[in-house]
Nucleic acid binder design. Sequence first.
DNA 1: AAACTGCTCAACCGCGTTGCG
DNA 2: TCGCAACGCGGTTGAGCAGTT
Length: 600
Amino acid sequence: MTSKDQMEQINSQPSEEDSCGESTNKGNEDLKKGPWTSAEDEILVNYVDRFGEGNWNAVQKHTKLRRCGKSCRLRWINHLRPNLKKGAFTEDEEQLIIALHSKMGNRWAQMAAFLPGRTDNEIKNYWNTRKKRCQRAGLPLYPPNACHNVSEENVQCSRLSKYSYSYDQPLELLQGSFPDSPDIISDNFQTSYGASSYAMPFADAAGFGSQNYSFANPTANCVEQSTDSEKFLLALHGSVADVYPTTKQFLFQPSGSTPRNCFGSLHGADPSSQSLAPLLGAIPGSYALLNDTFSTYCPTRGTAKLELPSDQCVETDASSRLSCPATPVSVYNVQSPSATVSVQSNFVSPWKSGPMLRQAHVLSDAEKEPSEMSSITSTIKPNDVFECSGLSINDMELYSTAVADSYMESPSALVSLQSKCFPPWKSSPVLQEAHVLSSAEKEPPLKSSSVTPIVKSSDVSECSINGTELYSSPVAFDRYVKSPSATIPFQSSCVTPWKNVPLRSVLQEGHAPGNSEAKSSEKRSVTSIMKPNNVICSSGLSINDREFNSKPVVADTYVGSPPATFSLQSKYLTSWKSDPVLVEADAFDSAEEEPSKKFC
DNA sequence: AAACTGCTCAACCGCGTTGCG
DNA sequence: TCGCAACGCGGTTGAGCAGTT
């Protein structure tokens, strides 16, 4: 019997109860509450091994566990699932939590997406403790001069009324931006951007020293910056290297967001390296949190609704524009240095939550109308950062920043970049020029990879290196590949401290659905050159808007020599196959110095 | 040593959301 | 369109532990 069959069998069984919280108590008198025992844990782990996550209410039916589904889910998520990080928060994590909370409010689950291996419950507990401690000590939760702390009532208010903002906060903060988060992505909101900075001298019990958090928003300044990109980069670098020599780079993508490249903490990166600039400018929906410099991109899309974080004010100027970040650009079909190339840009449209790039690809395969396709025609240089702005779609203007991640034949070729947007209601493309922000940097050679993947709806993968080192949330595929020989350009974006170019990986060795070998779990592996602090995000295909879900993955094992390879294994849950599905990642042959610090 | 206090954290609870028939 | 079930999230609770009196 396949796991799918097993699950169907489970599902076919009549449900006798609701979860414990809403339980009608029909026959649930024997459900246990309270702390879990190791025996119960073992039962639950065995159940998940066999049937996979989900169907929590079925646990009780198929095991001797007398726990409600809700309790099982919580136990698994908070304690039993692999790659959970135990122990106290590190200083970095604490700072990140505070920074995230200042931007997101009490959205613990979203914050957890930025902290691999940490649960929302942990973060929530930490924050509540911190809040209590600060209140008792008379210390502000946030930097005193930020002047934007809001009461819990405001937090609630902002949550209840997405249009209820307070305006008594400094403009700098109003112009601060949200980190991209799943909820924010799904929520349409509107804000205005502006490069801003303010001093945030932390002096609280959490160990903050005096620090400056500057909120630079390249998107808002795209025109200005793009006309003088070097100035922008210099300023960026200066703020990092000159002022804060111990800067750490954080680039995040929440796990629950739509599939775009994710980045985690980058330690050991040379702050003065120009490679940072494209990163800072290139990550859609991400924000760069430097130890002392906190840069954000505010991804917005769709009609204007904004769920404010607890202490965030947003200018609600009707003229403010929606901004839409883009993901790194993939370059295809480079014909000549000056020739036109087809670039696929992961724009996120207001009418689709998934990146246009992938949707376009899929739609193209399906021979559907290119209504949601966004293409950029350009001649570009590797690592160039593009500010693609002004894709006005139905009163919503899309902004984006993109980085080319493929080396073009002539690194010195200068380009003009045009975006073509094909909204559903337009028959002709909208052309938009973009700006090249940085000079060329030659991309290291990539190892070729071959793939023959088969992925299926509801497939879930988890990444790990040597079983433990990587932390990621499941990546779900939502679409069958039509034949075993089909190729799914599953992209595992790895941002190394020495490169701002994502590694690319693809699924390999697929099996057709319905295979009798089907079992509940599979493994696939990614072979790539990795170093500690490499951050990987499995940002695979999104075919139906939002099925992909991944967290940044941090590799904390140094591979002996830079060009070495290692096996990145992902637990891959499918219903038709038991053998590992291999994923081979493109690997860089670069031999940069080893990062000096570990992040995880 | 006992009582008290504060803290941490696991677990529960209620509600909102989503998916599906 | 509606109702239901499952899931997910944020708020709350309380047990257990450590430190202090």
